[in-house]
Simulated scan of single mutants.
Amino acid sequence: MTDDVTKDRASGLRLPGLRGRRVVVTAGAGGIGLAIARVLYEQGARLAICDVSAEALRTASAELGDCLAMQADVSDDAQVSAFFDAVSAELGGLDALVNNAGIAGPTAKVEDITPEDWRRCVDICLTGQFLCARQAVPMIKAAGGGAMVNMGSAASKHGYVHRSPYSAAKFGVIGLTQSLAKELGPGNIRVNAVLPGIVEGPRMEGVIRDRAAAQGISYEEMEANYLRNISLRRMVSQQDVAMSVAFLISDAGATLSGQSLGVDGNIEAL
């Protein structure tokens, strides 16, 4: 399903409780993060986004009503702390966190993966979610409760050949999500994970290209292999993922916590 079709389907949808809600979206200046930020902005949320690209932040902020947009690498504790200090000053508090930042990591056999590449992937995809959560949670508690959505992956449920750092980190996201849901639930903070599948766009094209090269087959063969393992036989769109995140943050998801929602057309294997 294309983004245009999904947008048409969602254009009249108004999710309850999002207007005025203060939300942080990490890596919110491009890709899935920007799609999430757009949906939340259209629903009336007040946004703060971070990203590593200053140029992308300027463009995204202008599109999102000149929202707070700040450079920050989520794997860097000092940068994360500075960003949330700015969020507190600008928004006066926080109601929800979308832990979206992540990277694809290396595509290689385990013996060919460098420790540096392993650490970088895990630091961004998993440790970054912890660093943001530890800053966001006191602010959400002070607001009387709220929501957190952690970005997992279909690789949170399936082993992924030649993508061991990424899959290991994304399995960790589910553990983090379920642990925080139990810890924070009594304080009225809901914590869920969204697990996108094969998402249309440049990042997935790069993954397919690299994995095809690692296995010595063509791009077209590898793409066909991916689609063959999806029950619906199609990729999902960034907008599909964004609407699922918005639902979980909204009052429509008020009793959902500790869940891992697959937005993937039912991936049977990776």
Rank of each mutant, 00 (worst) to 15 (best):
47 L>I: 00
20 G>D: 06
159 G>T: 09
135 Q>E: 15
137 V>S: 13
91 L>W: 00
236 V>R: 03
80 V>S: 11
19 R>Q: 15
148 M>G: 09
270 L>S: 11
52 V>D: 03
167 S>M: 06
263 V>C: 03
230 I>G: 02
69 A>S: 04
29 A>L: 08
252 A>N: 10
43 Q>Y: 00
90 E>M: 02
24 V>F: 02
69 A>H: 01
72 A>H: 12
19 R>V: 13
199 V>F: 05
56 A>F: 10
28 G>M: 05
16 P>A: 14
197 G>D: 12
254 A>E: 12
148 M>K: 04
150 N>W: 06
214 A>H: 04
184 L>C: 13
105 G>H: 08
115 P>N: 06
204 M>S: 15
85 D>W: 02
80 V>N: 12
9 R>E: 11
194 V>T: 04
32 I>G: 10
195 L>V: 05
35 A>H: 10
106 P>Q: 07
259 Q>T: 15
101 A>R: 10
178 Q>L: 05
157 K>A: 14
130 F>P: 01
56 A>H: 14
43 Q>K: 00
21 R>E: 02
265 G>L: 00
263 V>T: 03
197 G>V: 14
259 Q>C: 14
195 L>T: 09
82 A>G: 10
20 G>C: 06
240 D>H: 09
195 L>M: 12
77 D>Q: 12
156 S>F: 10
154 A>P: 00
188 N>F: 15
184 L>N: 04
31 G>L: 11
162 H>M: 09
58 R>N: 05
11 S>P: 00
233 R>S: 07
148 M>T: 11
106 P>D: 05
209 R>C: 06
90 E>T: 15
120 R>F: 01
93 G>L: 05
14 R>S: 09
151 M>V: 01
219 Y>C: 02
234 R>V: 12
177 T>K: 13
191 V>T: 07
117 D>E: 07
186 P>N: 15
74 V>H: 14
218 S>M: 01
248 L>E: 11
58 R>V: 03
185 G>T: 14
182 K>W: 08
207 V>W: 02
148 M>H: 06
189 I>Y: 04
211 R>Q: 03
135 Q>Y: 06
12 G>E: 05
253 G>A: 13
